[in-house]
């Protein structure tokens, strides 16, 4: 009886979106140049550029790289894994985005895991130590048949510190869109 009631509730909830993510429109504005708290980070989106030549990092002849430069810090009491850092910023509604730099698969841009590099030295970012502010470069690759967007639509995601139900380890889980905004995209000067 209880199971049946649960199933009915689930079916009815499906009419209103069910288990889908809450709509991004419910999030607060993500404003260029303004710090935004998205646990466990404070993110400040600085600017966006596009280029097909990232120097020693990568070059592409099949499209372009969309780049967002973001100041990021954490005031958590422990370093935060790269995967959490990658989930903290997403591209919304951009067409023709590859699932990974150099990969072949095109997926919805919100699902793409960006590559993250340190602006100061051009090396790949790893875990973010507590108390330090980094200028990070978030990179997505877009195929050349798509027009260059005039603005990038961004979403920041916050996480929750909780115990894993699988291995009982504590970590940051449940990325949830908490702010959305746009940033003008211009071509990077060599």
């Amino acid at each position: 009886m209880v199971l049946m009631a649960g199933a009915v509730l689930l079916l009815v909830s499906g009419l209103f979106g069910g288990l889908r993510d809450a709509p991004a429109e419910a999030a607060v504005p993500l404003v260029v140049g303004k710090p935004h708290e998205a646990a466990p980070f404070t993110l400040t989106v600085e600017r966006a550029r596009w280029t097909s030549d990232l120097g020693e990092i990568a070059k592409t002849d099949r499209g372009r790289y969309l780049i967002v430069i973001v100041k990021v810090r954490t005031d958590a009491d422990r370093s935060v894994d790269l995967s959490t850092l990658q989930e903290a910023l997403a591209l919304r509604g951009a067409k023709g985005i590859y699932a990974a730099m150099g990969g072949d698969k095109i997926v919805p841009s919100l699902e793409v895991t960006p590559s993250v590099y340190v602006l100061a030295d051009g090396t790949p970012m790893s875990a973010l130590p507590p108390g330090l502010t980094y200028e990070l470069v978030y990179i997505w690759e877009q195929r050349g048949s798509e027009p260059v967007p005039e603005r990038l639509k961004l979403a920041s995601r916050s996480h929750t510190w909780r115990q894993s139900s699988l291995d009982e380890q504590m970590n940051w889980f449940d990325p949830t869109v908490d702010a959305v905004g746009t940033v003008p995209l211009i071509e990077a000067k060599p």
Binding site: D77, R78, S79, P124, M125, S126, A127, P130
Partner: peptide, 16 residues
């Protein structure tokens, strides 16, 4: 583990 008790894991390109 720093003087404030905050911890940084060594694993990855920058801390290893």
């Amino acid at each position: 583990r720093d003087a404030d008790g905050r911890t940084t894991a060594l694993g990855g390109a920058r801390s290893a």
